[in-house]
């Protein structure tokens, strides 16, 4: 057997401290989830950068494509009323 070309690719997400979201930090190769989790610990938290790790098999991620952009995001451009800045307040009102 020589086919070790395809150790799976995993994406790594770290929660850097409690109260924050997990954030994508990079990827690595591993053969199963457990191993991916341990390598994520060894590779991406060498300086104690995290308190919680997620690993996800890259091929399990469903991603939008650039060709989706027009239909996905452009329709959201015309709803300024969803943003607080849309509403002008009297000068006396400092915050709302």
């Amino acid at each position: 057997m020589t086919d070790n070309v395809n150790m799976k690719l995993y994406e790594v997400f770290l929660r850097s401290r409690r109260g924050l979201d997990h954030k994508h930090v990079g990827s690595l190769h591993a053969e199963d989830q457990e191993q991916a989790l341990e390598y994520a610990r060894d590779v991406y938290t060498r300086r104690g950068e995290g308190v919680s790790i997620w690993v996800v098999n890259s091929s399990d991620i469903c991603a939008s494509q650039e060709s989706d952009c027009e239909s996905f995001y452009d329709p959201l451009d015309d709803k300024p009323y969803r943003h607080a800045t849309h509403y002008k307040l009297p000068d006396e009102v400092n915050s709302m």
Binding site: M7, L28, H29, A30, E38, Y39, D42, V43, R46
Partner: peptide, 11 residues
């Protein structure tokens, strides 16, 4: 044997 393990062993 591969980079991930190199890093892990060094830890």
């Amino acid at each position: 044997p591969f980079l991930e393990e190199d890093i892990a062993l060094t830890n």
